[in-house]
Structures are given as C-alpha cells and as structure tokens.
C-alpha cells in the first residue's frame, strides 16, 4: 500500500466518511474508492453491497481476484441522561469500540465523579447535540426519563438518521411518549424506529444488566442483516 493511500484512509475516517480499498490479490495493485465516488465506479454494485453490510470480502471479477476492504467510520454512542444505567453503559460501550458522549443538563447527574474519563456535556439537548454531528454511524440512547430532556433529543436523533435509537420506559411510558411525538408531527414510521422498551429481552434487572441488554440490541442492529435485526 502506498503511504499516500494510508494517509487518505486516515483522513476520510477522521471526517467520518467510509472508504473502500480495492486490492488485486494477484498483482498487489490497489486503489482507494471514496464514498462519494462509489456510484460511478465500475464495481459499484459490489462496492455498495459491501458498504451497506459493513463487510469486507474477496470477489472475483473477470478472472481477477479482488479484495474489498471496507473502512466504515467508528460508531458513536450518544447517551441522553447521566443516570445510573448510563454509568454502566458508557464504559461498556467504550470497551466495544464506540466513541461515547453523555448529555444531561442536570449538573448533579452529569458530574465527572460519576463518569470518570467519559465525555460529558451538562447542557440541554438543543445546545449539546448539534456540535456532535450525529449521523448514520451513531447509536442514540435516551434514558434521562424526563420528557423535557428526552423528547427534543429523540427529535434530533430521528432527523439525523441514527442507525439505532432506543428509549427507556415501559410500554405505557412509551405510549405517552408516542402521543407527544405525534403531536410534534413525527410520523408513525419514524416512531417505529425507536426501540422501546429499550434493550434485548434478557431479564435484565440491575443497571449493568440493562446496559448489556442495550449494547446487545445495538450490536444486533449494527451487525445482523436488516430483516432479522432486533
């Protein structure tokens, strides 16, 4: 690989744009395809398929063995609510490779003592969220349990195409939330994108177990083919 190619991969990743490296395994020839150039590429259907699945793999094209290496951006996790569950969720998510940010305007909750080494923003969602550049490679978890904090955050997440959105609360709580969001003009299709009650059903009780259930659900959403995702 050329050092310039490696450098370009790193630049694109820092800007949170996916890239694909196409290597001819037979002769070592290599080229870098930027996300924006995929549509015009001769291999566009293969490239799009691999990018969509986030999977690298070998393909054969006209007798040549090519390897497509997909470099997708690092997934982010934004947690709304610096609550007990978040104290377990943030370090767990970080060990799974996510860039984690916790947002809660209640400074008694969002204290560094409660979240050592975690990026904390003690602001309301309307101030905290826009600079975070939330995108498709972001999982968004809403656990503040206060509609004044949770609802505007959910609206922001729905607008920014997060691959996962989950919200804490029983079916009854979520029913009331659904009514409030609909009153704000959110469509039924968008409301169905919210995972609630949050987390895979594993009988979780403690905050740490709920954190495991949430990360399991996020992992399923990220990795399973879309039809069978939880």
């Amino acid at each position: 690989m050329k050092l310039a190619t490696l450098s370009a991969i790193n630049t694109e990743r820092a800007a949170r744009r996916p890239v694909i490296v196409v290597t001819d395994i037979g002769n070592g020839e290599q080229r870098l395809v930027m996300a924006a150039d995929i549509a015009d590429d001769p291999l566009h259907s293969e490239l799009e398929r691999h990018l969509r699945m986030g999977k690298s793999g070998a393909i054969e094209v006209e007798g040549r063995n090519l390897f497509l290496n997909v470099y997708a951006p690092t997934a982010k996790l934004v947690i709304i609510g610096a609550v007990h569950i978040s104290q377990a969720l943030a370090p767990l998510a970080r060990s799974l490779g996510y860039d984690v940010t916790v947002v809660d305007p209640r400074s008694a909750f969002a204290s560094p003592e409660r979240f050592p080494d975690i990026r904390l923003i003690a602001e309301w969602p309307d101030v905290a969220l826009p600079p975070l550049n939330i995108d498709h490679y972001t999982a968004f978890v809403v656990v503040a349990h206060d509609p004044k904090i949770d609802d505007p955050a959910l609206l922001h997440a729905l607008e920014h195409d997060c691959f996962y959105i989950g919200a804490l609360g029983s079916r009854k709580t979520h029913g009331q939330r659904t009514l409030r969001l609909k009153a704000q003009g959110i469509s039924c299709a968008d409301i169905e994108r919210i995972h609630a009650p949050i987390g895979l059903e594993i009988g979780a009780i403690s905050p740490s177990e709920i954190a495991v259930a949430i990360m399991a659900e996020i992992t399923a959403q990220l990795r399973l083919p879309k039809a069978s995702a939880a």
Partner: peptide, 18 residues
C-alpha cells in the same frame, strides 16, 4: 484501552512518515 482499527492505521501512517 483496545487498539481500534483507526488508531492502528494512524500509527502505521506515523511510522511511515517517520
């Protein structure tokens, strides 16, 4: 902390530039 892909590719770039 775990080395992530982007961290190690960045390290490789830095080694190359050095």
């Amino acid at each position: 902390m775990l080395d992530r892909d982007e961290d190690l590719l960045k390290a490789a770039e830095n080694w190359g530039k050095a």
